[in-house]
Simulated scan of single mutants.
Amino acid sequence: MELTHGWSRVLPPGVAERYELRETRNAAAVLAATSPTEFAEVCAVLAGFELTTADLVEAGGNESRLAARLNAAFRARGWREGRVDTVVTSRLQVQPWAPAGEHGVTVRESEVVNEGYKVDNVKGRVALDVEWNAKDGNLDRDVGAYRALYDAGLIDGAVLLTRTHDDLRELARELTRAAGGSDDEVRSRLSTSTTTHLGKLESRMTRGDAGGCPLLAVAISRRCWVPADGEPDRPAAPAPLMLTDELA
């Protein structure tokens, strides 16, 4: 599936310049036209978000804290968690046979309920998830949920917030080195090949996993990083560490 660039016409420059963006079916323009309030709120959250050094270098729970921070910003604007459930009802109508004295239709029904996946945020006709550094299987779940919601006529489009890979990994290395971190600590910063990032999401978008649902992918990049007071704009790293091929 071909990627579109409608986001360049509707996203505020301050947002477009800080994030890496991908979309299918002109998702940003669709959402700006059909859900202007929700689209403006997405832009406001993105404009106000800052990536901190702690998000990248502090051990334990950083990914969930960052995602919680973004989700809380949407909750404060009225967005709520949703779940995609499917109910299938099958009905057998047995017709009467007059010569046997039968008159009424006999109806038998069977209902199957499938409790589906949760969506982090839903408001109006827009669905939105935050996948900062989760297992990449979450992308299949999210995109599948968007497709189901769109096919059912419940949403007009979706937004998925994730991260870039190479530039943030390098920034995490620099920050960890500047803080005197060890080789093992450097190696652990966003280096796994099984977690969510834009490259993993883009491949799912271009092969059409979202079906007809317009999908806007917004990736947190190095340009979102804001140094703390007294922290240089670009960390000054000590002598290069010897890295293994894992980080090549």
Rank of each mutant, 00 (worst) to 15 (best):
T206P: 01
W79D: 01
D156I: 03
R147W: 00
P96L: 06
T53E: 09
P238L: 05
K135G: 15
A248N: 13
R187W: 10
L11F: 10
Y146V: 02
P240M: 06
P238M: 05
T192H: 11
R25T: 08
C43I: 07
M1W: 09
Y150G: 03
A73R: 11
S191G: 13
L149S: 00
T195E: 12
L160R: 01
L201K: 01
D245H: 15
R141E: 02
D140V: 11
F74N: 00
G180Q: 12
G153V: 07
L21C: 02
K118F: 12
W79R: 02
V119I: 13
L243W: 14
W132V: 07
A148Y: 05
A210N: 06
V15L: 08
L3C: 10
A178P: 04
E23N: 04
L243E: 15
G199I: 09
D229S: 13
L161F: 09
V143N: 00
D140W: 13
D140Y: 11
A33E: 14
L46G: 05
L216S: 03
V186F: 06
G180K: 10
S8Y: 13
L139D: 00
W132P: 06
S90D: 15
L171D: 01
R177T: 06
L56N: 02
V105S: 08
A33V: 11
T37D: 15
D166G: 12
G137H: 10
E23F: 00
G153Q: 06
R77L: 14
V159Y: 03
V122N: 05
R173L: 10
E231R: 06
R83S: 11
T89S: 12
L11M: 10
T195L: 10
T244K: 14
K200P: 05
W7S: 03
L51H: 00
V218E: 01
R80M: 13
A228V: 07
G137K: 07
V30K: 00
W97K: 14
G82C: 11
G157L: 01
D120H: 06
E185V: 14
A158G: 04
V15D: 02
P232R: 12
E111T: 13
L216A: 03
L46K: 05
L11W: 02
K135E: 15
D233H: 12
S188A: 15
E20M: 07
T195C: 09
R125M: 13
G78Q: 15
V143D: 02
A178M: 01
L56W: 02
T106I: 08
E202N: 14
P13A: 13
